[in-house]
Design a protein around this nucleic acid. Structure first.
Length: 707
DNA sequence: ACCTGATATCCGATC
DNA sequence: GATATCAGGT
């Protein structure tokens, strides 16, 4: 089939699609048809008769790779099998397993996810008595973040501490020791973390000329998506894979760089022209996604940036409604205001064309409650991963042990499930198994019945290989009693998750692939899988990258939440928050709503405290936003407004509605406990009956309202 | 000596 | 909701 490139693409896109030889850098603004360009380029290559196997497509997520490949196949009207596509990590994993021997690595290495790595950090810390009893010693997740950051940014731990956590400099030596011990532990047990995958691949390519040349020859065309979010080692990998004159296309947008926390550097984009002086630079600036009013706002966000971006998106002059600024009274009301907005939007758009975006996973909790109540189905991206749930990890740990018997963390996890076995005993058992100390094992098994069962079970799996699904079936049966006793409250729900895990496993033929996929590309969301159902999307902004919706609502645009409080003291981090805000707004096609609650509920103290609108909002030209009066009476200060808030009704003409609904329902007070609301006394007080304390008149600020 | 349950503290985004 | 530590039980 012949592709009609001239009519389907604009001149810049066409240039990007048809420039196939030599290095190309495509600077693609938000919504400028970047995906379309990559898709057409893939199809064009195939159309020219290029062997799909010689194409390497590196993307940020496997989902992105999959989508591009499917769309390209659609264009071609035929499959595009053989294209290597995926994340840097998954490509590294595949290559490493194939050539593990060249590195002196066992090819059944296990990939550690974040919780695994943190667990090891904790163990080496405890085993070596580092930071014991010191309450201000950093926690395992802080320690691991620092170690990983130091590797990603390729700076010494000391330097990372000095830059980002100077208050921890006094622990520098202990932390360095933990980092060293962590590294040794991984080598000792054939474990590999995310960062290792990349560095090991680099080592493989550097040390082994034959493999390097073979890969270069085999992967003749390389495309790298989201290049602004690659880190130093990824940048070098691209160069190693492409060679000095390779046909490599890097696509990215420096204004959308939002992963510097993990060592990504826009330096890779800026440096691309230095590495490849002969490279062709193509800019895609025409926006096909958003209406002019939304684009205007997005351009303003960038205009406020310290570092100036040489870009200005222009659209086809599509008219549309002004972006709205919603100002709910607090974050609880925000959930209701958002729900109302979604219901209103639903009249115009399909649910699947609507998304709610936020800075951090937990910012959507209140809204999720409301959505469940209203019976609106949604899918959530970001936040806790399916594979990070304790029960899933338990089961996966069994599988990991079958694949890699030396996987000590998995061993400990499995053993700790047995009553009366804790960290110490499980470690002793491990050594007994490794050293073949039958006597100790026998002694323990005699004492603990469950232990013998467990060891027999594992032994059985190891001696007769089977498909992941069959193993899981037996395993789940065995695990069920343990699940029940561990989670008496909600084990049916967890059992359901496990059955879904088995469902997923049924499409895999080997354990290796199944396990790596579970750590590199865990299933995005669980729950009753009904792909046909029309669903609302909830997502962290990071997970929303590259996607678009007709209507987008951004929550919690207040200081400390967005920008995150972690960024407030750091100018560079603030710039990244700004780009993140830019990414959020550029997701919207027709409707954009920004929500900035006037106060935040502090769960800790049980009170609401006033919130400052995000600085990014304040610097916007008021003309480009339509201010909605929902939930707030004009002229009332944020503080009073917060006090006047009540859970009865979210919006509508505030004062009256508030008085009406304020007179029923319950609330909670820090000292008096739970009480029934008897009367609302404008502007700011409530008469409440507290059992045991009688009637009290209390300022709204000190009350926590119940649903 | 080791396990288990209760209590206080803190919370970021991803592969 | 998860993690870290402490107190009490075997």
């Amino acid at each position: 089939m012949q592709l009609d490139l001239e009519n389907e693409l604009n001149p810049s896109q066409l240039e990007a699609v048809t420039t196939l030889q030599g290095p190309v850098l495509v600077i693609a603004g938000a919504g400028s048809g970047k995906t379309r360009t990559v898709v057409y380029r893939l199809a064009h290559l195939a159309d020219l008769g290029v062997d799909p196997e010689s194409i390497l497509l590196l993307t940020f997520t496997r989902k992105a790779a999959r989508e591009m490949l499917t769309r390209a196949s659609h264009l071609l009207g035929q499959g595009l099998h053989g294209v290597t596509g995926g994340t840097f990590h998954s490509f590294a994993n595949l290559t490493l397993r194939r050539y593990a021997a060249a590195l002196g690595l066992k090819n059944e290495f296990t990939i550690l996810d974040r919780p695994d790595s943190e667990e090891i950090v904790k163990q080496v810390k405890e085993a070596n008595d580092i930071g014991r009893k010191d309450r201000s010693f950093p926690k395992k997740n802080t320690i691991y973040s620092l170690i990983s950051k130091s590797r990603n940014k390729e700076l010494s731990l000391e330097e990372i501490l000095a830059r980002d956590a100077s208050h921890l400099l006094l622990y520098h030596e202990e932390l360095q020791r933990i980092a060293d011990l962590y590294r040794e532990y991984k080598t000792a047990h054939s474990l590999v973390d995310y960062d290792d995958l990349l560095f090991l691949l680099e080592r493989l390519l550097l040390e082994n000329e034959e493999i390097r040349e073979f890969l270069r020859y085999r992967q003749e065309y390389i495309m790298v998506d989201e290049f602004q979010d690659t880190n130093l080692v990824q940048g070098r990998l691209v160069r190693l894979l492409a060679g000095d004159e390779g046909n490599v296309m890097a696509v990215g947008d420096d204004a959308q760089s939002i992963y510097s926390f993990r060592g990504a550097t826009v330096g890779n984009i800026l440096g691309f022209t230095e590495v490849y002086p002969q490279c062709r630079i193509i800019k895609l600036e025409q926006n096909y996604r958003s209406t002019q009013p939304i684009l205007g706002l997005c351009n303003q966000i960038l205009a406020g940036a310290k570092e100036k971006y040489d870009k200005r998106l222009y659209s086809r002059d599509l008219d549309g409604p002004k972006p709205q600024l919603l100002s709910p009274l607090n974050d609880m009301t925000q959930a209701r205001v958002a729900l109302d907005k979604i219901l209103a939007l639903q009249r115009e758009y399909d649910l699947q064309d609507i998304a709610v975006l936020f800075r951090a996973g937990f910012h959507s909790y209140h809204l999720e409650v409301q959505l469940n109540k209203a019976g609106i189905s949604y899918q959530k991206f970001g936040g806790m991963k399916f594979t990070e749930a304790a029960h899933i990890k338990d089961v996966l740990a069994h599988l990991r042990l079958i694949q890699n018997p030396g996987d000590l963390p998995a061993w400990q996890r499995v053993m700790s499930l047995i009553p009366s076995v804790g960290p110490k005993t499980s470690e002793r058992l491990y050594h007994a198994v490794v050293q073949g100390d039958k006597g100790y094992l026998e002694k323990k098994c005699a004492k603990i019945e469950d232990l013998r069962d467990k060891l027999d079970l594992l032994e059985g799996f190891r001696t007769k290989p089977d498909t992941p699904y069959n193993i899981l079936e037996t395993l789940l049966e065995h695990y069920h009693p343990q699940l029940k006793s561990k989670y008496p409250d909600d084990y049916p729900k967890r059992q359901n998750d496990l059955e879904q895990l088995a469902q997923i496993a049924s499409s895999y033929s080997g354990l290796d692939l199944f396990l790596t996929d579970m750590s590199l590309e865990p299933p995005e969301q669980m729950g009753e899988a009904d792909p046909l159902q029309d669903r609302l999307t909830l997502s962290t902004i990071h997970s929303a990258k590259g996607l678009e919706w007709s209507a987008v609502l951004v929550l919690d645009l207040v200081e400390e939440r967005f920008p995150s409080k972690h960024a407030l003291m750091d100018a560079e981090a603030m710039e990244e928050e700004r780009r993140l805000f830019y990414v959020a707004c550029t997701r919207a096609k027709h409707y954009l709503g920004l929500s900035a609650p006037h106060s935040l509920h502090n769960r800790y103290q049980g009170i609401s405290s006033p919130a400052t609108p995000s600085p990014f909002l304040q610097e916007l030209d008021k003309e480009c936003l339509e201010e909605m009066s929902e939930g707030i009476t004009a002229g009332v200060s944020p503080k009073q407004a917060a006090a006047g808030e009540n859970p009865g009704k979210g919006k509508k003409q505030s004062a009256d509605a508030e008085r009406d609904s304020g007179a029923d329902g319950y609330c909670r007070h820090k000292i008096f406990g739970r009480g029934k609301i008897v009367q609302f006394i404008p502007p700011n007080k409530y008469k409440v009956s507290f059992p045991g304390f009688g009637l009290k008149v209390v300022i709204g600020d000190y009350l926590q309202f119940e649903e």
